[in-house]
Design a protein around this nucleic acid. Structure first.
Length: 842
DNA sequence: CTCTCCCGCCACCCG
DNA sequence: CGGGTGGCGGGAGAG
């Protein structure tokens, strides 16, 4: 009720309402960090504040950050109505229908306006005087209402990696109100999130927020399922067909007898982690299932690119729907909805695939890949049928000219992987891929690569690696193309495919039995769910964390922000060696520029040590590691590789001593490679050498616990400053994209960074802007730049937040606030509602 | 034009 | 039955 009042009030006098809110904020800010605060704070900490649309939004610029709250306030005061409000008014005036509609939605609208207002205000600041632009932006364009944006807002409310102890409940009503949308839209978001286990239904109108902790696991499961479903095959089949037939007729493929029957149930493993009683009674949950299948397609795809039409066709086939055009159309619509959510999760990114036929909308998986199915290795690619040769051109929307057209020959087994695309984005940089990439690199624009991010395959994906991996050569593993200022570091850790898989399976099994079992049957899946559930619910946080490590929240991590730059598994933060080591490293190494080598070595040592020490991988290791690492460091040997001509002065140091403990190629063919390596960029790159020391040897799967362990990758940039060091967890490297993208997706990435030490943050801040790696990504840059200051409160804050959950410093954090708010809400829904008015509408 | 996908009607289902 | 859910597809904005 009160909510209504509030909204009405707002409606009547938005400005006033806003002020009131502000006041309240001030009052309550400390106990309740509310959105309101957020909005105000936003200027300071843009990151959390606004969900940034990775793919779409270019609007946001660093400038925004500087904005001071004061200004914001002033502006608001001076401007009675926000542009958005005006716009809306105009619109409603113009259209009676709209007006009516507005009235109907009256309750929601106000809030929505508020949101818009804030957003607008920010934008305005950015834009400056250009009223026109402002207007344009102000207008509640379709984009502003897009599901993706909405989803980002939604996600912004919750921590990506909530503490295990903390249970966040999501009230659909509340969310809908606070986001100013109809509940219907929230369902769309929640359904997709639920399909990934980011949330689960707790009760009517109530969802539990789980965050991304289990995402890797879920993805792994989906990948496996996808493999079982032979989606890859199906996709290949469809693609091939398209080549052959311009007109695709539904039903043609069915004969293939792809397993479709099980899907429903299998996919249905989305059973909530919370023992949600009611949970999914919905008749079909098709959106959820669709979402899962869609994800599966990416996961099984070698290219990690899925065109909507193919996805739609596969889905239609499976659903046994009559393949009429309308169905197809509808499917595609749904896929867009799903894709929007997935995009806001930084799991996929939009691209276009150009084939003979023309350009097709598609999405590329940019999320974590380290979770790779590896384990069982069960399903080997037997895609002999794929022997289709097709040429695809993938364009990254984000940037103009660069499109790479590649010819992909998929021969049985190996070829598919060869997709340039992957390499392009470095999602899964395999040695061979790297090669191809290198050739193509010139064509890529920085942006592209950046968007895609730099990827270092720390944990080779078994599937991909196995079949395709060519022998690794020192030269191959690292590619640096100065000309484009794009540099890619690719190292594949494991060589022996077989060994890897085996090891992986073992390790994994040991660690996560449930996973191994996933298998095909629905029951198993359910089990999975249950396991997860129990796991989350009952398992001690510490244990859980350790496990999670494997899962790789890490992969998500790319340092958007200084603090974020290094993400560790959330759990890790607590005591994991990984984090500790990193910190130590930072502490030690930061100073001397000269340290490029020595310092790097040190850093590497740490990393390598981790790698070398299998034990560490397991949960056993701890902070103590730092010491050990140091010791070991001394032992490490590096091979200095002169920059190949092509590399333009890029230097690489490879540690020869290291041997992949877990993976250890039987013959030790490429032992040298498995080692962490240091890469020193040439002058081109700038003063700072980049050191990359992936814990290559450890296949993720093989040493699940270690995963994170793989050890952080160190990039040290002596030139930048004394302290400039970048440590990137291997996992992170794997999914550079995600990390990079994160900029768009502040919350996710930002939060994870538990371990960043101030130094780290500092260094990042300094470095990133300049570092080639980051250049391409506008968003990332922004974030990075956010805190030019050596140690930004923000970064610190985050760190604390993540690590300790709640700290004084974190107060300012919107996310945290929201989280807290939610928790408080949990207590009573009624209260929540009450709160909403005041706090909710930020 | 095509691509996207918002919007909200209305059918399901559950309590 | 009422209300929470969510399938579905018309139709319009964006490019």
């Amino acid at each position: 009720m009160e909510v209504n009042c509030l909204t009405l009030k707002d409606l009547i006098n938005p400005k006033q309402a806003r002020l009131e809110l502000a006041i309240e904020d001030g009052e309550n800010a400390q106990k309740e960090n509310i959105f309101v605060d957020r909005s105000r704070m936003a200027p300071k900490t843009p990151i959390k504040n606004e969900p940034i649309d990775l793919s779409k939004q270019k609007i946001f610029t660093p400038e925004r950050n500087p904005i001071t709250p004061v200004k914001l306030v002033d502006r608001q005061q001076t401007e009675p109505w926000t542009p958005t409000a005006n716009l809306k008014m105009l619109i409603s005036a113009a259209s009676p229908d709209i007006r009516d509609r507005e009235k109907k939605k009256g309750l929601f609208r106000p809030i929505e306006n508020k949101d818009d207002v804030f957003t607008d205000s920010l934008q305005l600041d950015i834009v400056g005087d250009s009223a026109v632009d402002e207007f344009e932006k102000q207008r509640p364009s379709r984009k502003q209402k897009s599901l993706g944006l909405l989803c980002q807002k939604f996600l912004a409310r919750y921590p990506s990696y909530p503490l295990s102890t903390e249970k966040t409940t999501i009230s659909l009503d509340e969310v809908a109100v606070s986001l100013g949308v109809e509940r219907r839209r929230i369902y769309d978001i929640v359904n997709v999130l639920e399909s990934l286990h980011l949330v689960s239904r707790v009760a009517k109108n109530q969802y539990g927020w789980h965050g991304r902790h289990s995402l890797p696991k879920t993805l792994r499961t989906l990948q496996r399922l996808g493999e079982e479903q032979k989606y890859e095959e199906q996709m290949a089949h469809l693609q091939q067909k398209e080549l052959d037939l311009m007109d695709y007729k539904f039903g043609e493929h069915r004969k293939n007898g792809y397993p479709d029957s099980q899907d429903q149930q299998l996919l249905d493993f989305s059973e909530p982690d919370y023992s949600s009683s009611s949970a999914n009674s919905r008749k079909d949950k098709s959106l959820r299932i669709m979402s899962q299948k869609f994800v599966m397609l990416f996961l099984v795809s070698k290219t990690k690119i899925v065109t909507l039409d193919v996805a739609a066709k596969i889905l239609i086939e499976e659903s046994q729907d009559t393949p009429d055009h309308s169905k197809f159309k509808t499917k595609v619509r749904r896929l867009y909805d799903i894709a929007n959510v997935l995009t806001s999760l930084a799991l996929i990114k939009k691209v276009h695939v150009t084939e003979e036929r023309g350009r097709k909308p598609a999405f590329k998986w940019i999320g974590p890949v380290d979770f790779s199915s590896s384990g069982s290795g069960g399903y080997s690619l037997e895609i002999g049928s794929l022997a289709a040769v097709y040429r695809q051109k993938i364009e990254d929307n984000s940037h103009e000219s660069t499109s790479v057209s590649k010819r992909v020959v998929s021969t049985a087994g190996s070829s598919e992987t060869g997709f340039p695309v992957d390499s392009e984005y470095c999602v899964n940089p395999l040695a061979h891929q790297v090669f191809s990439v290198a050739q193509d690199l010139p064509t890529f624009s920085m942006q592209n690569s950046l968007n895609g991010q730099v990827g270092i395959p720390l944990a080779p994906v078994s599937s991909d690696v196995e079949s395709m991996k060519p022998p690794l050569l020192a030269g191959q593993s690292l590619v640096y193309v100065p000309s484009t200022s794009l540099f890619m570091l690719c190292a594949s850790l494991r060589e022996g495919p077989s060994p890897e898989s085996g090891s992986e399976g073992d390790g994994r099994s040991s660690e996560i039995p449930a996973t191994a079992e996933l298998s095909l049957t629905p029951s198993s899946q359910k089990r999975l769910c249950e396991d997860k559930k129990s796991w989350e619910e009952h398992e001690p946080a510490t244990k859980r964390q350790s496990r999670e490590l494997e899962d790789s929240p890490l992969s998500l991590v790319l340092p958007k922000k200084p603090s974020d730059s290094i993400e560790f598994a959330p759990g890790k933060s607590m005591g994991n060696r990984g984090s500790a080591s990193l910190e130590d490293t930072h502490v030690h190494g930061p100073h001397p520029a000269a340290e490029e080598v020595s310092g790097n070595a040190t850093a590497n040592c740490f990393v390598s040590s981790e790698c070398e020490n299998p034990s560490r991988n397991t949960d056993t290791e701890k902070p103590s590691k730092g010491n050990e690492s140091t010791k070991e460091a001394s032992l490490l040997q590096y091979l200095y590789v002169q920059s190949p001509a092509g590399l333009n002065g890029f230097h690489a140091l490879l540690s020869g001593s290291q041997t992949p403990h877990s993976v250890g190629p039987p013959s030790g063919q490429l032992p040298s490679f498995s080692v962490p390596c240091m890469v020193l960029p040439s002058p081109t790159m700038g003063p700072f050498p980049v050191v990359y020391s992936p814990a290559m040897p450890v296949p993720i799967s093989s040493a699940p616990g270690t995963l994170p362990n793989t050890g952080p990758v160190n990039f040290s940039l002596p030139g930048l400053g004394s302290a400039a060091h970048l440590l990137i967890s291997p996992a992170a490297m794997i999914n550079p994209k995600s990390s990079t993208l994160p900029s768009a997706d502040p919350q996710f990435q930002g939060q994870p960074s538990l371990h960043l030490s101030p130094v780290m943050a500092r260094s990042h801040n300094v470095i990133q802007p300049e570092s080639p790696v980051y250049i391409g990504h506008p968003a990332s840059v922004v974030k990075l730049q956010q805190s030019p200051v050596p140690v930004t409160p923000k970064s610190m804050r985050r760190t604390h937040r993540e690590t300790f959950f709640k700290t004084p410093g974190s107060l300012g954090d919107p996310v945290l606030r929201s989280r807290e708010r939610n928790q408080s809400r949990n207590t009573s829904s009624a209260q929540r509602r009450l709160e909403i008015p005041s706090s909710g509408p930020d």
